[in-house]
Amino acid sequence: MRFARTIAYALALPIVLVAVWWFASAGSTSVFWPPLSKIVSVFGETWTADRWTGDVLPSLARLAAGYAVAMATGVLLGVVIGLYRPVRAFCEPTLEFFRAVPPPVLVPVIALFLGYTGDASKIVTIALGCLWPILLNTVEGVRGLDEVMLDTARCYRFSAWTRLRQVVLRGASPQIAAGARQALSIGVILMVISELFGANRGLGASIVQFQRSFAVPQMWTGIILLGVLGFLLSVLFRLVEHYSLAWYRGLRQADRGA
């Protein structure tokens, strides 16, 4: 009964909103706001198998590659910077500056170095944009580690590798996850922007092509697809976070109960 109520609550407003969109736009003759029925009917013919393999999947692959590079570099550098106070003091103002530069302005700068037609420049853009939140959050997480815990691990003669894995990375992981979540949404933004700039193939590039050729219903299907992808990525992220940080939730609950 409770479950049914939750479901009803979760679905009620989305259904109403879609229904309002459907009926309000039903007779629409405006070029910019085509009827939702039209958008739905062109969805299948727009996103064919060819588009999926030629545009959508390459976009997602670039996002994954850039994100992975940022994750590896960010955590590695973050641990080094976070563990040693002089290194941290040395790097912090510089890092603060680079973080504050809005990532989209990287696009023209990277275009100077690599041109802007290939995959490499786009992956570099995504990686550079995602790097800062991951790096700075890792630094914060490592800095906030319990000194006693680090010393205890040393006293028990844990090897450096074990200390790094079991104490440092584990202890900083809630913060790293927070940074990774911020980075994911920046990554999606940059995935789209990098394709808007160097016009060739990709999800973002297709949407702009639709817009430039005034294929408005097709453009709407692209916007909806991008929205759904953004949503699915955040669900996926939350699942991964849920399982990898299960120990942390347990710990916090225990703290609160005590």
Binding site: T6, V192, L196, S234
Partner: peptide, 24 residues
Amino acid sequence: DLTASTIEFLRPIPSVALIPLVVL
């Protein structure tokens, strides 16, 4: 309770998806 699901859905939509629309 009523808006939670809608907010969770709309929030992660990348705002850049709206670029083509605002350009039009």
